[in-house]
Every structure is written in structure tokens, then in C-alpha cells.
């Protein structure tokens, strides 16, 4: 997600807050004038321009608030989609691991490999020798019947694209 999109609600909130303050100020000013000087004195000439401007400001605040709510809804929806996709991908990975009959240690190494870590990094994370990690990887590739990391990834992604994402989502949208 780019920072521009992430910060849009914040900018909008600030704009709404400032415009609400302005609208409240003009409204209060108008009411005070009416009460202090008598409405007959106030309701003429410039009054209609001021009233129209204030109403326009209030309308803008209402529209912006609706827009903000839409934006937040869309953001929440996208976040849900991403977590569904992540969950689906995780499910696919685990399905394949059990299908291939990977040992727990091999599953660990396979997860790290899919996340893009090098053999050196995996060895450091697991506290084992690089040779051990290499032999785990060879076993993984043999069991999955692929030639290397690229083959492993494309196997999983192919399966992910073949599955309907949304059908798997729990129907809990209330």
C-alpha cells in the first residue's frame, strides 16, 4: 500500500475538522447577531449571502464525512480481502506440505524458502549448518518433484490462482 493512500483518511479528517470549526463559528456568529440585534435587523442584504455560504460549508462537511466513511469501508474491505488471500495461500502451502509428506524440519525450511530467504539466512534462523539446510532443500524439491525454488513457488501460485478466493471466506459479514 502506498503512503499516499494510507494518509488520505488523515488528510480528510483534518479538512473535515477545520471546516466543521469554521461552520460552527459562522453559525454561532449568525445566531448571536440574530439574538443580540434582533432578527429584523439581521435578515437583510448580506445575511442571505452569509447564510448561503454557511449552509454550503455545512453541506461540504456532510459530503466529506460520507466520503470518509466510504473510504474507511473500502479500506476495511481491502484489508479483509488481503487477509483472506493470505489465509488461502497459507492453506494451500500447508495442504501441499502434508501432500508431499514433509517432515517438520523440512516444512520449516520450505516456509522460509517460500518467503525468499537465502540458505545462509535460513541456517542462521534455525541455528543449523548450511549443509543441513541444503539437504533439507534437496529433500523438499525431490518430494515436490520440482527442480528448484522457482518451480516450488510457481507450483503454489498456480494452485492459488486456480482457487476461488472469496468462496472460502467465512460468511460473517453482518
Amino acid at each position: 500500500m502506498t503512503p499516499r493512500i494510507a494518509n488520505t483518511p488523515a488528510t480528510l479528517i483534518i479538512v473535515i475538522a477545520v471546516q466543521s470549526l469554521c461552520a460552527a463559528f459562522y453559525l454561532a456568529d449568525l445566531l448571536f447577531d440574530g439574538v443580540m440585534e434582533g432578527w429584523a435587523q439581521v435578515i437583510q442584504g448580506d445575511f442571505f449571502f452569509e447564510a448561503a455560504a454557511t449552509l454550503a460549508l455545512i453541506a461540504a462537511v456532510v459530503v466529506e464525512t460520507r466520503f470518509l466513511m466510504d473510504l474507511l469501508r473500502r479500506k476495511a474491505y481491502l484489508e479483509r480481502q488481503v487477509s483472506i488471500a493470505a489465509g488461502a495461500f497459507h492453506d494451500i502451502i500447508l495442504d501441499h506440505f502434508s501432500l508431499w509428506g514433509l517432515t517438520p524440519a523440512e516444512q520449516d525450511v520450505a516456509q522460509f524458502t517460500i518467503k525468499g530467504m537465502s540458505i545462509t539466512e535460513i541456517a542462521a534462523l534455525r541455528g543449523s549448518a548450511e549443509g543441513t539446510v541444503k539437504s533439507h532443500l534437496n529433500a523438499i524439491y525431490r518430494k515436490a518433484d520440482v527442480s528448484g525454488r522457482g518451480g516450488l513457488l510457481s507450483l503454489l501460485i498456480e494452485d492459488l490462482m486456480g482457487r476461488p478466493l472469496l468462496a472460502q471466506a467465512p460468511a460473517e459479514q453482518t
Binding site: 483518511p9 488523515a10 479528517i13 470518509l68 466513511m69 466510504d70 473510504l71 474507511l72 469501508r73 479500506k75 476495511a76 453482518t174
Partner: peptide, 12 residues
């Protein structure tokens, strides 16, 4: 604050 606003927006 954003989480609270999102709850209101999504009727959560």
C-alpha cells in the same frame, strides 16, 4: 481513532 472510525463506517 482510525479503528474506531472504521468500526462506525463498517457498522462493526
Amino acid at each position: 481513532v482510525m479503528a474506531h472510525l472504521s468500526d462506525i463506517a463498517t457498522r462493526r
